[in-house]
Simulated scan of single mutants.
Amino acid sequence: MITLSSGCLNASSRLGERKRQRRRELLFLNSSTRFSEREASISTKGNKEIRKVDVTFFELSTLLAATDNFSTSNKLGQGGFGPVYKGKLSNGQEIAVKRLSTTSGQGIEELKNEVLLIAKLQHRNLVKLLGCCLEEDENMLIYEFMPNKSLDYFIFDESRKQLLDWKKRFDIILGIARGVLYLHQDSRLRIIHRDLKASNILLDEKMNPRISDFGTARVFGGEEILAITKRVVGTYGYMSPEYALDGVFSTKSDVFSFGVILLEIITGKKNTRIFNDDDSSNLIKYVS
């Protein structure tokens, strides 16, 4: 048996911490490069603002303890980024841990994008990011826990939708609108979300809506009003035609997505091929 002195253990601990710190630095060192993505319209002024951000880093051991080693009983759901787990910190605070999957089409760039954006945003209708974890091969985002899951959990379920009376539905619509208005006009940076949908609207204990998932969001600066991309991301059914077909996005893209969500809240139906009539193959055509 080999016995290590406390000095050796401390040295090993310091070395491990330096490695973790170096990984964090490499992640955020060139943060502004992500926002160009060959999209010349993205403002460098906005990029410099984003780099001024303080991020809380959680230890992997802390999250393992909080989620009971990512137990399936604590799994809240699965998204494009990866699975989401409920956890409880030692101080009793409940958290949601979004863990990057090795099979995900997203990756470290989407994580970086979300951290750098949402950490700068503060609004009661936006989900609050508590920090991230970058240890070993793990890449995770940690949020405040939303006990009522997401909007789609209620409005598309025949029994749960009955819990939402018209006043509550109106309040949810108003809350989402306030969040979008903040992103587009009232925040320090003009943010285009690009993936507004029912499953990205989380609900707190009082059923107040919180916009989440900023992994594909983009920053506009100055007098910029639109941009063009070759990489169209988001969810079909919520995308505006000009974005889905030509890659053109702006604040109007988010407004279109908000309109789809509004129709889904009112009708309780998804904007998919849910009708037998070929002339009314989706919710938008049906309403128009």
Rank of each mutant, 00 (worst) to 15 (best):
D246H: 07
E49H: 11
Y236M: 08
R194C: 06
G80L: 00
T229F: 03
G77V: 03
N200Q: 11
N113D: 02
G237L: 06
S240N: 04
D278T: 10
E39K: 06
R124G: 07
S280I: 11
Y143C: 13
M207R: 05
I191D: 02
V97I: 14
L76V: 06
E114Y: 04
L183M: 07
R190V: 07
R231S: 10
F35R: 10
Q106F: 11
N30Y: 07
R169V: 03
R169D: 04
S280M: 10
D204T: 12
N282L: 01
R188Q: 11
F156S: 11
R99P: 01
I284E: 02
R22M: 13
L283M: 02
K167L: 08
F220M: 00
Y238D: 03
R51T: 15
E144A: 08
A40N: 09
I265W: 00
F156Y: 13
E242F: 10
L130N: 05
F249E: 06
P147C: 04
C132E: 12
K112T: 15
N10T: 11
S281R: 13
S31G: 15
G7I: 15
F81R: 06
G247K: 03
R194M: 00
T102Q: 06
D246N: 14
R18L: 12
L189W: 02
Y238N: 03
L29S: 15
K270D: 10
L196R: 01
E264A: 01
N139K: 14
L9M: 04
N271F: 05
I118N: 03
L64F: 12
S288W: 15
S150R: 10
K45A: 13
L100E: 02
D246S: 14
T103K: 07
Q78S: 10
P241V: 03
S187A: 10
T103E: 15
K112L: 13
S32G: 12
D165C: 14
S288N: 09
F170A: 15
L151D: 01
T235S: 06
A217Y: 08
L117V: 09
G179T: 00
K19H: 10
C132H: 10
D68P: 09
V232M: 03
S90I: 08
Y143N: 05
L121W: 01
G92A: 06
K120M: 11
D279W: 07
C8W: 11
R218F: 05
L163T: 11
R160H: 13
R190K: 14
F70K: 08
V55Y: 04
H184N: 01
A244P: 04
L181T: 09
I50C: 15
I228S: 15
G247H: 01
D254A: 00
D68Y: 09
D246E: 13
R124K: 15
